[in-house]
C-alpha cells in the first residue's frame, strides 16, 4: 500500500483518477482502518488530504457554515456557532463512536462510507446540507441527500472526493434534532434513526418540515408524507400520529443481527415523534 499526501485538490483528483488499484481517501480513518484490519479492503493507495487548505476549518459563509471534510466530530461539537444553528446535525455527528473515535471521525467520512445507518447523514439531509465535490473537472456542489446511493455506494464519479459540507442559513424559530436507537447507551451502530428539521411561524405553527430516517432502507430516506403531516400544525396528537404512520410506511428495513424489520419500523416512528418534539421545542414552539 502506498500512502500519499497530495499538495493540492487538483493533484489529489488526478491521483485518484489515474489509480488503477483500490484507492481510499483517508479522512479520520475510523472506517478505513477498521476495514483494513478486518481484511475487508486492502487499498493499494491511501490518499491523505487532511493537510490541504480548508480541510480542517469551519468557516462562516452566507449565514451558514462550511465544514471542512477533515473536521473531526470533537471539533464540530466544540463549535458554538454550528451548535446554535444546527444542533441536530452536531448531535448526529457526536453520537458516532467513542470519545476516541470523535477525535478522528468526520462527517464526510461518515457520509462517504455509505452506511445506511450513518449517524451524521439524516440530520445533514434534513438540514439541506450541500456537499462540495472536487474532481478532475473541478468543483461542483450537490445535496448531501444525493451522495449515498446504496450500502457502501456513493454517486461520486471516478476521481471525485468531497472537500467540505455546507450547512445553510436558516430563519428564526427553526431548529432540528436527531435521535437513534441503539441497544447500549454508546458504541453501537444505529438500529434505526430519525432526524427532523422544522421552521415555525410566530404562532408556533410549522411552516416547513423535513423528516429523514436512517438504518431502515438502503440509504437515508426523506419522508415527504411525514413532512406534510407536520406542516400547518403545532405538532398536535393528530399530526404526530400521521407523522408516525408516514414514517412507518416509508421504512423498508432488513432483518439482521442488529434488529428486526418490525423493531426497526416501530422504533423509527417512535424516534421521529420524539425528534420532532425536541426540534419543535428548540425552535421555540410550545405545545
Amino acid at each position: 500500500m502506498r500512502y500519499v499526501k497530495p499538495d493540492s485538490f487538483e493533484n489529489a483528483a488526478q491521483l485518484l483518477f489515474d489509480s488503477t488499484g483500490i484507492t481510499r481517501i483517508l479522512a479520520g480513518g475510523t472506517d478505513v482502518l477498521v476495514q483494513m484490519k478486518a481484511e475487508m479492503v486492502e487499498p493499494d493507495l491511501l490518499i491523505d488530504l487532511k493537510h490541504l487548505s480548508g480541510m480542517r476549518e469551519i468557516t462562516h459563509e452566507n449565514g451558514g457554515f462550511r465544514i471542512g471534510a477533515a473536521v473531526s466530530g470533537a471539533e464540530l461539537g466544540e463549535h458554538a456557532g454550528v451548535n446554535a444553528l444546527w444542533p441536530g446535525v452536531v448531535e448526529g455527528m457526536e453520537l458516532i463512536g467513542s470519545t476516541q473515535v470523535q477525535g478522528r471521525a468526520t462527517m464526510v467520512g461518515n457520509l462517504c462510507n455509505g452506511s445506511p445507518a450513518a449517524d451524521s447523514v439524516p440530520a445533514m439531509v434534513t438540514a439541506g446540507a450541500i456537499a462540495r465535490i472536487h474532481g478532475p473537472d473541478g468543483a461542483r456542489d450537490i445535496p448531501v441527500y444525493e451522495v449515498p446511493t446504496g450500502p457502501g455506494k456513493t454517486s461520486l464519479a471516478r476521481g471525485e472526493f468531497i472537500t467540505s459540507i455546507y450547512l445553510p442559513a436558516r430563519p428564526e424559530n427553526a431548529s432540528d434534532a436527531y435521535l437513534r436507537f441503539i441497544p447500549r447507551t454508546e458504541m453501537d451502530i444505529a438500529v434505526s434513526s430519525a432526524a427532523v428539521s422544522l421552521e415555525l411561524d410566530s404562532k408556533g405553527i410549522c411552516t416547513e418540515a423535513k423528516v429523514a430516517i436512517g438504518a431502515v432502507a438502503p440509504t437515508v430516506r426523506l419522508v415527504d408524507d411525514a413532512s406534510a403531516a407536520l406542516i400547518g400544525t403545532s405538532l398536535d396528537d393528530d399530526a404526530i400520529t400521521k407523522l408516525v404512520a408516514a414514517v412507518e410506511a416509508a421504512c423498508s428495513p432488513i432483518d439482521d443481527k442488529r434488529g428486526t424489520i418490525a423493531f426497526r419500523t416501530k422504533t423509527a416512528g417512535v424516534l421521529a415523534k420524539r425528534a420532532a418534539k425536541i426540534a419543535y421545542a428548540r425552535a421555540g414552539g410550545t405545545s
Binding site: Y3, L33, K37, L46, D48, T99, Q100, G103, R104
Partner: peptide
Amino acid sequence: GRLVCSCLVLGVE
C-alpha cells in the same frame, strides 16, 4: 492533544 485510539491512526500520519 486529542484523545484517540492508536489502532485507528496510521504511523505515517
